[in-house]
Design a binder for these strands. Structure first.
Length: 916
RNA sequence: GGAGGGAUACCGAAGUGGCCAAACGGGAAGGACUCAAGAUCCUUUGGCUUAGUGCCUUCAGGGGUUCGAAUCCUCUUCCCUCCACCA
């Protein structure tokens, strides 16, 4: 068995020494930017989930490279974040050290995976040369009014001790620690994503993303058309609300305001004030205990009334727990008859219900109602709008309200501004200074980076930056007076919103990215990553791109043209991850079978977009395959004949053609199947191929294996003699360990100049084989199939008849009926399958029943005459071969010459057989 | 409550109207090689049968469209993922 360990070590070293995956901008080559979401460097190993993810990206990168694209395929680390800080607290190690250690280890593992990254472009967001630019962009955004500070009710995780963005709250819980998130009023920094809401929504259409992820984004942005109407509070002050259902406005019987609405407490008088305050306390306590999703809708009367501007009705105002303070105006009009939530609320508190939309039969009655009527219908109880269909009424009432200047048609979005402040240490310091005289002052860009302070005490609770006096106390950049620094840092999504730009020119120190190289590489052609980033990272990056475009720093609208979401790897019912403790590491598998097997298996076992349950049962198969491939190249090759040349050539061209399509469609698992098929075909035919044809096929195969099993590919490619310094094919006895071969070769080669190696000597830089449609002959394969089946049938008949040495085998070409069928169809002059089939069922041919139905459409569509015409000729050609195999006389008989023969066959063209 | 994805033989997983009793891999059984084991190779692997041709039953379950359905439509059951008091 070959020593795969040394094979992979050898080639990894060779690739690295020769620097073959380094890329430069090259205007003469078409570029391809293949990018995987940069990971958070947690832990110190990779598990099979990672192997799967990165292998998928690497297949694409290598495939495109072999196809002649200039491929940018970089890797880096999203290295700011809470885990490093927590580790620092626990293990008494600085987060920087912790992070750098983790990165070093993970890079090691990635290299062992054989990933074809350009390691010269590695970036890590915690390094000042990177986060300097976060600060730069922040200052620019601030200048443009895209970054602002405001007091807001924000999500706060008590356990992580920081605020969270909307995207980081899951079902009312913190995404990291799963503790309940509470609301707090805090001064925070925001980026104005809402300045781009419309564009973010509209441009989704342009993207080659899955419909699923597109719809997640659309829902998140959440556009709804409606009407903003000014109700009046009973003291005459404005009380605007937003509704998408103006048609129900005459059915309003109460109003509800959010509990944390800024106006609420101020408008109340005792005893209602106290009631409301008690109620708020109650709800807060309940929220801390229970899951948000099961809290019943409840509320309390505020003692105030609101006047409906359309009919001047006075309705009670409630404070309710189901109204969101930060959507629209934080208050709603309630129409219990036609909204389920309002209905439940009204029932609970005995509020009147008023029907304003009737069903088709006008049978809707209040006393029968068990739930709200939310279907379409006809307006009633709505003065001059009565009788209108409710959809028309939406339009009509909106127009009326606008005409009367009581309100305005509006569009509301769910998307909110992006909260970037975090009260944590391990993030980019926000480059802002608070000066008593000048107020909020950004740092000058020349002063950047503003470094994270080192004199901090991680042992104390709260934000560690607060313990650094050297950091906090500073001078105002404007007036040079005493000032305090902002101590919040930026959330990690800031880092990941532009890292793809940094890869283009990772080392520039005077700009965040070099405009020219960005223009060359961007946008990303294929982005690969998990679906969990559908709303966070993938919206922020789009926002960033658009904002930078408007600041004339970029020239395109969208960062990621195509996006592929790979499936998650599960084990024991949970996502494979360190925190679940259900991991199988890369090492576990690589040590046993080699890394190519690990990669191949993860690609083979399931379609890349589907989730999979880890199971190492089948891995032996991938390992066997790899050994089988190796053996194919290692075996002494003896050509017996060239009979199979044309078959192999045709078959190979089909393989190349279909393989391309399969990879383009991301069906990497079926691509592996095709490789397996082709390999076993090679085993079948190789003895009957000429050396030239066979070697060409082996050479093509080595290249096509490269994306999947790069080390094996490289090895066999060189065993074939694709190396200027090697003249002989390897022979078995020369070295027991074939790996040594390659090492010798490589040592030889390393005397050559690097540039020479660069474009000639690595399979990884080869040219992907082309296929030629003209060399594909379907008929050949049909016949091959028939021949093969016939051969097998003869064998099994001989076995069953216990004949060891037959004296004669008669093959009866027995499908005269197919000629009849063919003629019959020709005569009908129709292309309608149903018609033809019905007709045939009334003829003699009926007895061939099912088989007719199978063949008819083929005859109509493609007319593959060979199915029904040529087998006699074909078998004449192949008699000699069969005779050689069976060492007896083989005779062909036509059906009409053999009256006693049975005429049914298992497949078209396959002859019936008589043995004697 | 909303959106999406699934259910295929012992297992994983292909397969989107007829060359489908269903690719490929695992497992299992038999055989070859071997003193033996392992590795490797070959065959079989829904049922009943036949020397071969054959017949019956299958792709979660019911109903439908069609000459023909794993594949299309419809309902039901079960599983998964994502979003969710968005007015």
């Amino acid at each position: 068995m070959p020593d795969f360990k040394s094979i992979q070590d050898k080639w990894q070293k060779a690739w690295s020494d020769a620097g073959i995956f380094k890329v430069k901008e090259d205007k003469h080559k078409k570029k391809f930017y293949c990018l995987e979401m940069f990971p958070y460097p947690s832990g110190s190993f990779l598990h099979m989930g990672h192997v799967r993810n990165y292998s998928i990206g690497d297949v694409i990168a290598r495939y495109k490279r072999l196809k002649g694209f200039n491929v940018l395929y970089p890797m880096g680390f999203d290295s700011f974040g809470l885990p490093a800080e927590n580790a620092a607290k626990k293990e008494k190690i600085h987060p920087r050290e912790y992070t750098e250690n983790a990165i070093a280890k993970i890079v090691e593992y990635m290299k062992q995976l054989g990933l074809s990254y350009d390691w010269d472009r590695i970036i890590a967001s915690h390094r000042p040369e990177y986060y300097k630019w976060n600060q730069y962009f922040f200052v620019k955004f601030f200048e443009k009014g895209l970054a602002y500070r405001k007091k807001a009710s924000v999500n706060f995780c008590e356990s992580c001790n920081t605020v969270l963005a909307n995207e980081e709250v899951d079902n009312g819980k913190c995404w990291r620690c799963e503790s309940i998130v509470v609301n707090k009023e805090l001064d925070q920094w925001f980026l104005k994503t809402t300045a781009y809401t419309e564009e973010l929504l509209n441009d989704i259409k342009k993207l080659e993303w899955s419909d699923k992820i597109k719809s997640i984004q659309e829902n998140w942005i959440g556009k709804s058309h409606g009407l903003m109407i000014s109700f009046k509070l009973d003291d005459g002050t404005d009380f605007p609300i937003f509704t998408t259902r103006p048609d129900t406005i005459y059915g309003v019987t109460f109003m509800v305001i959010a509990l944390n609405h800024p106006r609420l407490i101020g408008m109340l008088h005792d005893p209602y004030k106290k009631n409301v305050q008690d109620f708020i306390k109650e709800v807060e306590e309940a929220e801390l205990k229970d899951d948000m999703d099961f809290l019943e809708k409840s509320g309390v009367f505020t003692g105030r009334y609101v006047i409906n501007p359309l009919n001047n009705e006075k309705v009670p105002l409630y404070a309710g727990n189901f109204v969101l303070s930060d959507y629209a105006t934080g208050a709603i009009m309630a129409v219990p008859a036609h909204d389920q939530r309002d209905f439940e609320f009204a029932k609970k508190y005995n509020i009147p219900i008023k029907i304003v939309i009737q069903n088709k039969d006008h049978t809707l009655k209040l006393k029968d109602m068990e739930k709200a009527f939310i279907d379409n219908g006809t307006l009633v109880n709505s003065v001059s709008f009565n009788g209108l269909n409710n959809n028309e009424a939406i339009e009509k009432i909106s127009e009326y309200v606008e005409m009367k200047a009581l309100g305005k048609k509006t569009v509301q979005f769910k998307l909110k501004d992006w909260l970037i402040s975090r009260q944590r240490y391990w993030g980019t310091p926000i480059p802002i200074v608070y000066c008593d005289k000048c107020g909020i002052v950004p740092l000058h860009v020349e002063e950047l980076p503003l470094l994270l302070p080192d004199d901090v005490d991680f042992s104390k609770p709260g934000n560690p930056i607060l313990t650094s006096n050297s950091f906090i106390n500073t001078k105002c950049p404007k007036c040079n007076g005493e000032a305090k620094r902002e101590t919040d840092t930026m959330g990690g999504f800031m880092d990941s919103s532009w890292y793809f730009l940094r890869y283009c020119s990772p080392k520039t120190s005077d700009v965040a990215f070099d405009r020219e190289t960005v223009d060359y590489w961007m946008p990303v052609d294929q982005y690969v990553g998990g679906i969990e980033h559908a709303v966070g990272h993938l919206i922020y990056s789009r926002f960033f791109t658009k904002a930078l475009r408007d600041m004339k720093m970029l020239d395109f609208d969208e960062p990621f043209n195509a996006l592929f979401n790979q499936g998650i790897v599960y084990k024991d019912g949970a996502k494979m991850s360190k925190s679940h403790g259900n991991i199988v590491t890369q090492d576990d598998i690589a040590n046993k079978y080699g890394i190519d097997t690990a990669r191949l298996f993860m690609l083979f076992v399931a379609s890349p977009d589907k989730e999979m349950e880890w199971n190492d049962k089948g891995i032996e198969g991938s390992f066997r395959f790899i050994n089988k491939v190796y053996k194919l190249y290692d075996d002494e090759f003896n050509s017996m004949s060239n009979n199979k040349d044309k078959y192999l050539v045709s078959r190979k061209n089909i393989f190349i053609r279909d393989f391309n399509k399969t990879i383009d469609d991301f069906k990497l698992n079926t691509a592996v199947v095709m490789l397996m098929d082709f390999v076993s075909y090679l085993y079948d035919v190789r003895e009957n191929c000429s050396k030239k044809v066979y070697h060409e096929a082996l050479n093509n195969l080595a290249i096509m294996l490269n994306p999947f099993t790069p080390h094996l590919s490289e090895e066999i490619y060189h065993m074939l003699g694709n190396n200027k310094n090697r003249t002989n094919l390897p022979s078995k006895d020369q070295d027991s360990n074939n790996a040594i071969f390659g090492i010798k070769n490589f040592e030889l080669k390393s005397e050559i100049s690097k540039t020479e190696i660069f474009n000639t000597d690595f399979c990884s830089l080869e040219k992907w084989p082309e296929y030629n449609e003209e060399l594909i002959d379907d008929k050949l394969h049909f016949m091959e199939n028939v021949f093969d089946n016939t051969r097998k049938d003869i064998i099994s008949i001989l076995e069953l008849a216990k004949i060891e040495k037959p004296s004669e085998v008669k093959l009866i070409i027995a499908d005269k009926w197919k000629y009849d069928l063919y003629n019959e169809i020709k005569n009908m002059n129709s292309k309608n399958v149903s018609e033809i089939t019905r007709h045939l069922m009334n003829t003699e041919l009926k007895k061939h029943g099912q088989e007719i139905m199978k063949i008819v459409p083929k005859i109509i569509e493609k007319m593959p005459e060979y199915i029904i015409e040529d087998e006699y000729g074909f078998f004449s050609e192949n008699i000699a071969e069969l005779e050689k195999i069976f060492k007896c006389k083989i005779t062909l008989i036509k059906e009409e010459d053999c009256k006693e023969a049975k005429t049914k066959q298992s497949m078209p063209g396959k002859p019936a057989i008589i043995v004697s």
